[in-house]
Structures are given as structure tokens and as C-alpha cells.
């Protein structure tokens, strides 16, 4: 099982890093958010920023949020990679070896999540260029990256679960629109939840994106809330178990 997982996982990684366009795409999108969306409050009065965002630099507020939403969008890649394997027949090659379907699922979910992690260093450098002070403690970074990894793994698993029987290129995109938009806006990734309507606040309180954004912001201030990390770990575990079970039952060669 480890052999098979490792082989398929490295295949995902190699395929990603041999396709420069994919890498550029992965990195450019969150960078655009940071540069364009992040600059929208550049000339806002500092008193407003302090009162509303509790920081004088909106980009510092936005960075953990954008990293979280971008881990949410990499979920789509695990589905796309699976559908591509089905359409090219490669899934048949894998499933004609003694490889369990749940191992195929795990390799796709971990592969896509790892692919999402490449955004972190690029975004960190970009944020520093915009004047954001980043933590220097390796421990804080490890917690931050673990939280983002759990968030990505959870959503990759969720996407794989939702598209397990699909062979259509378009399905992941459609589902992504249904999943990404509400989860991004009904979270504290872009704005604090203080001025949300009550129903959106309720939704935001259970939304894993909120927990990841809050965790990142607390780390920028040097004080990681362990409960937020715990919530993300449980979310990831639950989604992985669900995805492995669904895949072992319903994953087909085409």
C-alpha cells in the first residue's frame, strides 16, 4: 500500500512540476487577489482599517484569507486529475494492478494538496513586498502550513467524493463554482464577519475556511489558537475517511 501510494503520489507531483503552465496558473491567481483586491483599501483612512480589520495594512489581513481560499480551489485539481486518468484509460492501467481504489484516492488528494502548498512561499514573498511583517519562528510556520495542508486535503477529498463517478471535464469546474464562491464569501477570508447578516455568520462559524484564515491571522500576531488547528485536522480526517470509503465503492475505470 505504501509503495503504491508513493508511486502514484510522486506521479502527481512530477506531472505538475513538468507542466510550467500549471504552476504559473496555481501561483498567479492568488497573487492577483493579493495585488488587485488587496490594494482596494490602499487609500482608506488608517482609522477605518484599524477599526474594521484591526490592522493598518489590508494585505496583512488578506494574506491568510487568500492562502486559505487558494487551498480551497486546489480541491478541483484532484478531481480533474482523476477524470483525466479515466478519460485517457490510465485509471484502467492502475486498477489492473493490485492497487486498492482507496490508495488511488489518497494519492490524488495528497498530490493536489501538495501542489497547492507551492503557493505559500510565493505568496509570502509577495506579501513581504507589500510591507507585511511575517513570523520568523519555524514553529509558527509549521503550524500555519499544517493548517493550510489540512484545509486543502479536506477540500481535495470533498471534490473527489463529489466527482467520483464523473468522467466529464466540466464537472469539477461546475462544482467548484458551487463550492468555492459561497465558502469564500461566507468566511472571514476577505472581510471580518462582524457586519455579516446572522445566517451568514452562522455559516461562517462552521466554515473551515474561516478557521484557516483565523489561524493564519493569529500566527501573524504570534499567537496560534490550537482549537482552530484542531478543527482543521478533524475536518481533513473526516473528509479523507469519507473520500476513501466512497472511492473504494464507486471509483470506476471510466
Amino acid at each position: 500500500m505504501m509503495d503504491q501510494f508513493w508511486g502514484l503520489f510522486l506521479r502527481e507531483i512530477k506531472r505538475t512540476y513538468r507542466n510550467p503552465l500549471v504552476l504559473v496558473m496555481t501561483v498567479v491567481q492568488p497573487f492577483m487577489w493579493l495585488a488587485f483586491f488587496g490594494s482596494s483599501f490602499a487609500n482608506a483612512p488608517p482609522s477605518f482599517l484599524e477599526g474594521y480589520f484591526h490592522t493598518n495594512n489590508y494585505i496583512a489581513f488578506l494574506l491568510p484569507g487568500v492562502l486559505s481560499t487558494s487551498m480551497l480551489t486546489v480541491g478541483m485539481f484532484s478531481s480533474m486529475s482523476t477524470i483525466q486518468d479515466k478519460r485517457f484509460g490510465y485509471m484502467k492501467r492502475i486498477l489492473l494492478t493490485p492497487t486498492p481504489k482507496s490508495t488511488v484516492f489518497l494519492s490524488k488528494a495528497f498530490g493536489a494538496t501538495t501542489r497547492g502548498l507551492v503557493q505559500i512561499p510565493v505568496m509570502a514573498v509577495a506579501a513581504m513586498a507589500f510591507g507585511v511583517a511575517l513570523p520568523t519562528s519555524p514553529g509558527l510556520w509549521a503550524i500555519w502550513v499544517t493548517g493550510l495542508f489540512c484545509l486543502g486535503l479536506g477540500f481535495c477529498s470533498l471534490f473527489m467524493t463529489l466527482t467520483v463517478t464523473s468522467t466529464d471535464w466540466q464537472t469539477p469546474g461546475v462544482i467548484s463554482n458551487f463550492v468555492t464562491m459561497p465558502l469564500m464569501f461566507a468566511s472571514t477570508a476577505l472581510f471580518p464577519s462582524a457586519s455579516f447578516p446572522a445566517w451568514m455568520q452562522d455559516f461562517s462559524r462552521i466554515n473551515p475556511v474561516t478557521y484557516s484564515a483565523t489561524l493564519g491571522r493569529a500566527i501573524l500576531l504570534g499567537d496560534p489558537p490550537w482549537t482552530d488547528l484542531g478543527y482543521l485536522v478533524i475536518f481533513a480526517l473526516a473528509m479523507v475517511v469519507l473520500g476513501a470509503w466512497v472511492s473504494s465503492r464507486w471509483l470506476k475505470i471510466e
Partner: peptide, 18 residues
């Protein structure tokens, strides 16, 4: 059916892992 992005040796390597 092969993985076009990988080399011939990597295709063999993956088959061995599987």
C-alpha cells in the same frame, strides 16, 4: 495507455511500484 508526461523508465518504475 501510458503516462506521456513521464519517461519510459518512469513508466516502468511506476508499474513496479503498483
Amino acid at each position: 495507455i501510458l503516462d506521456d508526461e513521464l519517461t519510459a523508465w518512469e513508466n516502468l518504475w511506476l508499474q513496479a511500484k503498483l
